[in-house]
Nucleic acid binder design. Sequence first.
DNA 1: GATTGCGGTCACATCATTTTACAGTTTTTT
DNA 2: AAAAAACTGTAAAATGATGTGACCGCAATC
Lengths: 220, 220
Amino acid sequence: MADILVVEDMVEIGEMLHDFLAAEGYDVYHAASGEEALEIYASEGAKLLILDIMLPGIDGFSLCKRIRQNANTPIIIISARTNKDDKLNGLILGADDYIEKPFDIDLLIAKIHGIMKRRYATDEIIDGDIRLDKNSRKVYLKGEEVAMRAKEFDLLLYMMENKGKALKKEDLFNKIWGFESDSEPQTLNVHIKYLRDKLEEDSKKPVHIQTVWGIGYRYE
Amino acid sequence: MADILVVEDMVEIGEMLHDFLAAEGYDVYHAASGEEALEIYASEGAKLLILDIMLPGIDGFSLCKRIRQNANTPIIIISARTNKDDKLNGLILGADDYIEKPFDIDLLIAKIHGIMKRRYATDEIIDGDIRLDKNSRKVYLKGEEVAMRAKEFDLLLYMMENKGKALKKEDLFNKIWGFESDSEPQTLNVHIKYLRDKLEEDSKKPVHIQTVWGIGYRYE
DNA sequence: GATTGCGGTCACATCATTTTACAGTTTTTT
DNA sequence: AAAAAACTGTAAAATGATGTGACCGCAATC
């Protein structure tokens, strides 16, 4: 899922927004029309929409309404229009905020940070059955808490943060145990086993923590 | 008593406000008319009113007046009108703030936080059986006062303010004892034990102050 | 000047975690 | 198919963190 979907038909503005937001660390998609926006939203999803009201084809209001119909994705509306009706309309339709063109990029970024924090303030990583809470250092499997020891937690966290990547044993070891550690690399195996015992249905046929033969392990 | 009573005849705006404020952790009631507002206010009470001036039936001004007659409940007035009379009127009638439609939800939330903090600065943290009063530095367990020494109090306060988080021993120590302190980190253990002795039914099986092995402690 | 109590330290018991060693198993290579 | 390499399982040992009670010194209080 993308972080932010910018819907803006004026290419320069769209690109500028993209650059600024990407610089803030967000994963940004850019749609130049309502149709394209719906397409991207359907295929990629988005955590936040930045929406220009005046669009060719499907206009911003309709788009806002349609997206709000089946998801409560937060929306920030941008518009050059100045009459009050738009503002009201936008807010009533469920937009979380309204900003006028020409807009202050810092204000927009501040608003985005605010919304993202309010809505997605989660130090959680969720993946299927498994939920990991960085704050409390608790891990849940199908809603049930699974007690994790410090190293197990760190290892799982690192693997989930790098979901899908094949991680070299050496790298994993350095990440969790630190460079200076003079423990045997064998230790890693044992901890992988512990994790599998706790998280896999059948630890003989691991689904989440897979072995990449000759390399290391991969979480998926 | 409810935290906030929203008086707004436009259902969409009322609901939107409700959702946002509830997300901020407030207990929100919503009245769609002046009459309903008075009813809810009489039966439930409220710490803060958010009041749309333009209402069917009893209008906002009258409502404001009537509520201010026998209570100094803070009131934030919302209005689409822009002429100055309203603002003056509203403020004279005792409203604590005035905000124009279309309003910036972040601004409104900021104002609410401010008023709540100024007016109802409780200086209390309540969590289940345990109540902690920052002002008097007293702690109550099931209503009974439990004598706490300075360091114990500071430690408990910090842990309760970070409820649910796994707090590193090092961080805890720096917070309570300060960076320069050259006391032994072991001291922390001892104080944790003191707290458990005072607060836990069975200090062998702590419910509130949990050990996070290899990391530190967690209050929950 | 004696008393009291808090905050800190220490030593040791206890316990959870991590490591190790080694045997067993699977996979890959020859 | 046999050999080699890589991985897994297991239990015991080592390590290190935590819990606990006793004790000490200082400062406030009487």
